[in-house]
Write a protein that binds this DNA or RNA. Structure first.
Length: 577
DNA sequence: GCCGTTTTCGGCCCGACTGTTTTCAGTCG
């Protein structure tokens, strides 16, 4: 049996889509491949099984041709069609897709007329002035391409949430000083609380004659490094931090439509427009119109728009075409958890291991946040790099926690550990030691390079351990720098469901692990979730808000999250009564 | 390429901006 997973199939389908674009194929055909790639990577079922049973052809968006290709890929690990397509272009040509302003048509032109197929070659050609006389190009586009290459060298194209959030709030506060702004909001992936952010979309409503001054305010903000586009309704800049920010100014009556449109996701919007068409309406960023006579349907906010389309309101975090539209049609959407629902949090570090603040300081910070409890889980003895705790340290820490708990009126510290999952899946203390703790977070911190099968077995072993309460950061990924270890998350989640164990959403903005796509699957399997900050200092406690965003993207309600429970219920859940 | 209780053929979301053009193609979201 060939070993090819969903991720690999999806990436091949996506590559085929790009190659077809380069060839100038029918755009709807290329879109079919991109859609299929998305569908496959979002599947929670076993791909091998779907292929073997032939069910793959019944998945929406996968017809006869794609089903055959996917089947070939999964069973043989190869696909002649893909190999033939790949052979038509040098592999480095994909680099060019990342330069702003260059799309498939222009790349094709560059390749066929100038033989350019890599970033190096492109940069060289620009410096030789060879794009100036090329049909469809010119001095200006050559200059823009050069700047695009520079920007790529200088910046990675995506940003962690705190960086994007800071840039967005700074910018929107700056713009709000302009005269005549009626409504303003951040849209795009930041509003949807995506785990990483590509660019920032800001939306403003104002009267037409106030617009030029607002645009001017925007492009002259102190953080702006370069203005990319400056139109009447849309401007685009790059900040010194490298983040791209777009500003749209619309009339106030258009604001809800524009907010909906620019919040996306793209896939969600495509579905919404199709639904509008089903109602003989046309939806765009300016309004909702009757197809027959172009008359507008007035809507005061987003909720109103959705109502007109026969849907209940869909929270921005859910707008990923991940089942939210079907659920909205049936009025079956979850009542999403909010940050204010949290009653405490777990998985926090102190000066006992590699944290910066003492037990007392962490507890005080938790109380300041009006929480009822805090779960301390310092590193375990195997984590020597992080001053992991010996059994004696654990005893000492227990004593201090008991003494602090006696002083508190209505606050409680839970004593736990973040115990390393060793290579064979065992935890790094004996059962007696672990059994005396209030809770155990089991995490992988070493031996990342195991095969998927081995790693999956290892983690399931840890889940089976009677002392394990929570599986910590299930994939170990570091966003924008390190992929997670190879692991079959579907099997992990099913094991957690079978053994009644919880999984954390590690809320550190570099982790956000469990991924929201899998959070939804975990919920469907009945697995309980902890929203944990993995805090190494008192400010780190605030990271739970990123975790709440991910929880919301994963359709979680208050009842799904243990640390949204009152302290009595948590005590019962942890079996401490 | 996919899809269909109006359809197995003819649709497939829609508009702004740029840079090239001299009325528009390509890119982007």
């Amino acid at each position: 049996m060939a070993l090819i997973n969903k991720k690999e199939v999806a990436s091949i389908l996506e590559e085929i889509g790009t190659l077809l674009e380069l060839k100038g194929e029918n755009p709807f055909k290329t879109r079919a491949y991109f859609n299929a790639a998305r569908t496959i990577s979002g599947l929670t079922g076993d791909l091998q099984q779907l292929v073997e049973s032939g069910e793959i052809g019944k998945v929406k968006g996968i017809g006869k041709a794609l089903a055959e290709k996917i089947t070939t890929l999964v069973t043989t690990g190869e696909l002649a069609y893909y190999e033939e397509l790949k052979a038509e272009f040098p592999p480095t040509i994909f680099e060019l897709m990342n330069i702003p302003g260059l799309g498939p048509k222009k790349i094709k032109k560059l390749y066929e007329t100038l033989g350019i197929s890599s970033l190096i070659e492109l940069e060289y050609a620009c410096n030789e002035n060879r794009l100036v006389d090329l049909e469809g190009f010119g001095a200006k586009s050559q200059e823009n391409i050069l700047q695009g290459i520079e920007a790529r060298k200088k910046y990675s194209e995506k940003f962690h949430l705190p960086v994007a959030e800071h840039a967005a709030t700074t910018m929107i506060e700056h713009i709000r000083k302009a005269k005549g702004i009626k409504r303003s909001d951040i849209a795009g992936s930041l509003r949807r609380k995506k785990e990483i952010i590509g660019d920032i979309d800001i939306l403003v409503s104002a009267a037409q004659n106030d617009t030029p001054a607002i645009m001017k305010k925007f492009v002259s903000a102190p953080e702006v490094e370069r203005v990319i586009a400056g139109g009447k309704t849309k401007s685009s800049v790059i900040l010194k931090s490298g983040i791209n920010v777009d500003l749209r100014v619309v009339a106030d009556k258009e604001f809800p439509f524009a907010l909906h449109y620019f919040t996306g996701s793209k896939e969600h919007n495509v579905r919404m427009r199709t639904i509008a068409k089903d109602h003989n309406l046309k939806l765009n960023e300016y309004g909702l119109f009757h197809e027959s006579n172009n008359k507008p349907v007035a809507c005061k906010d987003e909720k109103d728009i959705l109502k007109k389309l026969g849907l209940v309101y869909i929270e921005p975090e859910l707008r990923e075409d991940f089942g939210e539209i079907e659920a909205a049609e049936k009025n079956n959407l979850p009542g999403l958890i909010e940050e204010k629902d949290l009653r405490g949090t777990f998985h926090c570090h102190t000066t006992y291991s590699d944290g910066a603040n003492t037990l007392k300081e962490m507890a005080d910070a938790a109380m300041q946040r009006k929480w009822q409890y805090l779960g301390i889980a310092d590193h375990s003895k195997s984590a020597q790099y992080a001053r992991g705790l010996s059994k004696a340290d654990l005893k000492k820490q227990r004593k201090e926690i008991n003494s602090l708990n006696e002083q508190f009126d209505s606050f409680q510290i839970f004593h736990g550990i973040e115990s390393d999952i060793l290579a064979d899946g065992s935890l790094d203390y004996d059962d007696k030691t672990l059994g005396e703790l209030d809770f155990v977070v089991a995490s992988v911190h070493s031996r990342f390079k195991m095969s998927e099968a081995e790693m999956t077995r290892r983690i399931i072993n840890a889940i089976k351990n009677k002392n394990t309460t929570i599986l910590g950061h299930p994939t170990g990924r570091l966003l924008l720098s390190r992929d997670g270890y190879q692991v079959d998350l579907v099997k992990i989640i099913e094991a957690a469901a079978d053994y009644g164990k919880a999984i954390e959403i590690n809320s550190h903005p570099y982790r956000l692990d469990l991924d929201w796509r899998m959070v939804k699957f975990a919920k469907e399997k009945g697995v309980k979730i902890f929203i944990n900050p993995d805090a190494h200092n008192t400010e780190g406690l605030d990271d739970v808000r990123f975790g709440v965003g991910i929880a919301r993207k994963g359709w979680l309600e208050k009842e799904d999250v243990i640390n949204a429970m009152e302290v009595d219920r948590v005590i019962k859940y942890l079996g401490l009564l």
